[in-house]
Protein backbone atom coordinates (compact mmCIF):
# COMPACT_ATOMS: atom_id res chain seq x y z
CA UNK A 1 0.00 0.00 0.00
CA UNK A 2 1.65 3.20 -1.16
CA UNK A 3 1.37 6.49 0.67
CA UNK A 4 1.55 9.21 -1.99
CA UNK A 5 1.34 13.00 -1.40
CA UNK A 6 -2.14 12.92 -2.94
CA UNK A 7 -3.62 10.54 -0.38
CA UNK A 8 -1.44 11.54 2.58
CA UNK A 9 -3.19 12.94 5.64
CA UNK A 10 -2.99 12.44 9.40
CA UNK A 11 -4.62 9.05 9.02
CA UNK A 12 -1.66 7.88 7.01
CA UNK A 13 0.55 8.74 9.97
CA UNK A 14 -1.50 6.34 12.09
CA UNK A 15 -0.35 3.51 9.84
CA UNK A 16 3.29 3.96 10.79
CA UNK A 17 2.95 4.70 14.52
CA UNK A 18 3.26 1.10 15.67
CA UNK A 19 6.16 0.21 13.33
CA UNK A 20 8.12 3.23 14.59
CA UNK A 21 7.57 2.20 18.22
CA UNK A 22 8.58 -1.38 17.35
CA UNK A 23 11.81 -0.21 15.73
CA UNK A 24 12.69 1.97 18.74
CA UNK A 25 11.98 -0.88 21.17
CA UNK A 26 14.10 -3.24 19.05
CA UNK A 27 16.98 -0.76 18.92
CA UNK A 28 16.84 -0.42 22.71
CA UNK A 29 16.79 -4.19 23.09
CA UNK A 30 19.85 -4.59 20.86
CA UNK A 31 21.69 -1.92 22.87
CA UNK A 32 20.81 -3.51 26.23
CA UNK A 33 21.65 -6.93 24.92
CA UNK A 34 25.07 -5.80 23.65
CA UNK A 35 26.11 -3.67 26.59
CA UNK A 36 24.07 -4.84 29.59
CA UNK A 37 23.66 -8.56 28.87
CA UNK A 38 19.89 -8.52 28.44
CA UNK A 39 19.10 -11.90 26.90
CA UNK A 40 18.30 -11.70 23.20
CA UNK A 41 15.15 -13.73 23.86
CA UNK A 42 13.47 -10.93 25.76
CA UNK A 43 12.81 -7.25 25.31
CA UNK A 44 11.26 -6.98 21.86
CA UNK A 45 14.28 -7.32 19.57
CA UNK A 46 12.93 -10.47 17.88
CA UNK A 47 16.11 -12.35 18.76
CA UNK A 48 14.60 -15.60 20.04
CA UNK A 49 16.74 -18.62 19.16
CA UNK A 50 19.41 -16.12 18.07
CA UNK A 51 22.16 -17.41 20.31
CA UNK A 52 23.07 -19.60 23.25
CA UNK A 53 22.18 -16.84 25.63
CA UNK A 54 19.15 -17.81 27.66
CA UNK A 55 18.28 -19.20 31.08
CA UNK A 56 19.92 -22.51 30.19
CA UNK A 57 23.22 -20.70 29.66
CA UNK A 58 23.09 -18.56 32.78
CA UNK A 59 23.07 -19.33 36.46
CA UNK A 60 23.81 -17.71 39.78
CA UNK A 61 25.62 -18.85 42.90
CA UNK A 62 24.58 -17.15 46.10
CA UNK A 63 26.63 -16.80 49.27
CA UNK A 64 26.23 -15.28 52.70
CA UNK A 65 29.50 -13.77 53.90
CA UNK A 66 30.01 -13.19 57.61
CA UNK A 67 32.20 -10.52 59.23
CA UNK A 68 35.21 -12.89 59.10
CA UNK A 69 34.87 -13.19 55.36
CA UNK A 70 33.64 -16.79 55.59
CA UNK A 71 31.29 -17.63 52.72
CA UNK A 72 28.44 -20.08 52.99
CA UNK A 73 26.42 -21.03 49.92
CA UNK A 74 22.66 -20.68 49.88
CA UNK A 75 21.67 -23.99 48.39
CA UNK A 76 17.94 -24.05 48.93
CA UNK A 77 15.92 -21.07 47.81
CA UNK A 78 12.23 -20.47 48.27
CA UNK A 79 10.03 -20.47 45.19
CA UNK A 80 9.81 -16.69 45.25
CA UNK A 81 13.59 -16.34 45.51
CA UNK A 82 14.15 -18.85 42.69
CA UNK A 83 11.75 -16.91 40.51
CA UNK A 84 13.53 -13.64 41.28
CA UNK A 85 16.91 -15.18 40.42
CA UNK A 86 15.50 -16.46 37.14
CA UNK A 87 14.19 -13.02 36.30
CA UNK A 88 17.44 -11.32 37.26
CA UNK A 89 19.39 -13.68 35.01
CA UNK A 90 17.43 -12.50 31.99
CA UNK A 91 18.64 -8.97 32.65
CA UNK A 92 21.58 -9.33 35.04
CA UNK A 93 21.98 -5.82 36.36
CA UNK A 94 22.55 -4.83 39.96
CA UNK A 95 19.05 -3.57 40.65
CA UNK A 96 17.52 -6.90 39.63
CA UNK A 97 19.89 -8.87 41.84
CA UNK A 98 19.17 -6.42 44.67
CA UNK A 99 15.57 -7.68 44.60
CA UNK A 100 16.94 -11.21 45.04
CA UNK A 101 19.19 -10.08 47.88
CA UNK A 102 16.33 -8.35 49.66
CA UNK A 103 14.13 -11.42 49.36
CA UNK A 104 16.97 -13.48 50.85
CA UNK A 105 17.49 -10.97 53.66
CA UNK A 106 13.82 -11.23 54.61
CA UNK A 107 14.41 -14.79 55.81
CA UNK A 108 16.40 -16.48 58.53
CA UNK A 109 19.02 -18.90 57.25
CA UNK A 110 20.33 -21.86 59.11
CA UNK A 111 23.13 -24.34 58.39
CA UNK A 112 21.74 -27.61 57.14
CA UNK A 113 23.62 -30.77 58.07
CA UNK A 114 27.37 -31.16 58.53
CA UNK A 115 30.01 -28.93 57.05
CA UNK A 116 30.88 -30.40 53.66
CA UNK A 117 34.20 -30.20 51.85
CA UNK A 118 34.40 -28.90 48.32
CA UNK A 119 35.11 -31.78 45.94
CA UNK A 120 37.50 -31.43 43.01
CA UNK A 121 36.27 -32.99 39.78
CA UNK A 122 37.82 -33.51 36.38
CA UNK A 123 36.34 -32.67 32.99
CA UNK A 124 34.47 -35.99 32.91
CA UNK A 125 32.74 -35.20 36.18
CA UNK A 126 34.83 -37.72 38.14
CA UNK A 127 36.00 -36.94 41.68
CA UNK A 128 39.76 -36.35 41.76
CA UNK A 129 40.27 -34.93 45.23
CA UNK A 130 39.13 -32.66 48.04
CA UNK A 131 39.73 -28.92 48.11
CA UNK A 132 40.90 -27.00 51.19
CA UNK A 133 37.65 -25.17 51.69
CA UNK A 134 34.43 -26.54 53.15
CA UNK A 135 30.99 -25.04 53.50
CA UNK A 136 27.79 -25.34 55.40
CA UNK A 137 24.77 -25.63 53.20
CA UNK A 138 22.40 -22.83 54.18
CA UNK A 139 18.65 -23.24 54.00
CA UNK A 140 15.83 -20.74 54.65
CA UNK A 141 14.09 -20.99 58.01
CA UNK A 142 10.99 -18.82 58.13
CA UNK A 143 10.61 -15.07 57.88
CA UNK A 144 13.08 -13.00 59.88
CA UNK A 145 11.53 -10.86 62.64
CA UNK A 146 11.51 -7.17 61.67
CA UNK A 147 13.49 -6.09 64.76
CA UNK A 148 16.48 -8.29 63.81
CA UNK A 149 18.97 -6.47 61.66
CA UNK A 150 20.49 -8.33 58.76
CA UNK A 151 24.21 -8.55 59.54
CA UNK A 152 25.80 -10.35 56.60
CA UNK A 153 27.07 -9.40 53.21
CA UNK A 154 25.41 -11.18 50.34
CA UNK A 155 27.39 -12.21 47.30
CA UNK A 156 25.69 -13.18 44.10
CA UNK A 157 27.90 -14.62 41.40
CA UNK A 158 26.52 -14.44 37.89
CA UNK A 159 27.89 -17.23 35.65
CA UNK A 160 27.60 -17.81 31.93
CA UNK A 161 27.86 -21.18 30.22
CA UNK A 162 29.10 -21.76 26.72
CA UNK A 163 29.42 -24.93 24.70
CA UNK A 164 32.08 -25.66 22.12
CA UNK A 165 30.58 -28.03 19.54
CA UNK A 166 34.03 -28.91 18.13
CA UNK A 167 35.58 -30.07 21.42
CA UNK A 168 32.19 -30.98 22.95
CA UNK A 169 33.16 -29.15 26.09
CA UNK A 170 31.05 -26.77 28.13
CA UNK A 171 32.85 -23.89 29.74
CA UNK A 172 31.63 -21.77 32.61
CA UNK A 173 32.71 -18.21 33.17
CA UNK A 174 31.98 -16.03 36.20
CA UNK A 175 30.74 -12.90 34.47
CA UNK A 176 30.21 -10.70 37.52
CA UNK A 177 30.01 -10.69 41.31
CA UNK A 178 27.41 -8.51 42.98
CA UNK A 179 28.05 -7.73 46.65
CA UNK A 180 25.26 -6.36 48.78
CA UNK A 181 26.06 -4.80 52.15
CA UNK A 182 23.70 -5.15 55.14
CA UNK A 183 22.76 -1.45 54.93
CA UNK A 184 21.38 -1.98 51.42
CA UNK A 185 19.24 -4.85 52.56
CA UNK A 186 17.71 -3.24 55.64
CA UNK A 187 15.21 -1.26 53.59
CA UNK A 188 13.30 -4.47 52.95
CA UNK A 189 12.26 -4.61 56.60
CA UNK A 190 11.06 -1.04 56.62
CA UNK A 191 8.87 -1.71 53.59
Amino acid sequence: MKITPRNYDWRSAIIVVVPIVALLVAARQVYLSRYHDLTTWKGGGMGMFAGADFSLNRYAKLFITDSNGQRQPLTELTREQTDLVKRALNYPVRRNFLLVAKAIASRDWIPKGERRPVVLIDSKGKKVGIADESYHSMAPFGLRPGEDNWKWDLQIEYWKLSYNPVTRRAHSLRAEIFVFKPEELQSHERN
Partner: peptide, 18 residues
Amino acid sequence: LFRSSFLKLADNELEVPG
Protein backbone atom coordinates in the same frame (compact mmCIF):
# COMPACT_ATOMS: atom_id res chain seq x y z
CA LEU B 1 27.60 -30.05 38.05
CA PHE B 2 28.55 -26.48 37.16
CA ARG B 3 25.86 -25.10 39.41
CA SER B 4 26.97 -26.78 42.61
CA SER B 5 28.89 -24.67 45.11
CA PHE B 6 30.36 -27.87 46.57
CA LEU B 7 32.23 -28.81 43.41
CA LYS B 8 35.36 -27.28 41.94
CA LEU B 9 36.02 -27.98 38.28
CA ALA B 10 39.39 -28.01 36.60
CA ASP B 11 39.45 -24.94 34.30
CA ASN B 12 35.70 -24.64 34.76
CA GLU B 13 35.23 -27.06 31.90
CA LEU B 14 33.29 -30.26 31.44
CA GLU B 15 33.04 -32.71 28.60
CA VAL B 16 29.49 -33.02 27.34
CA PRO B 17 28.56 -36.55 26.29
CA GLY B 18 27.14 -35.48 22.92
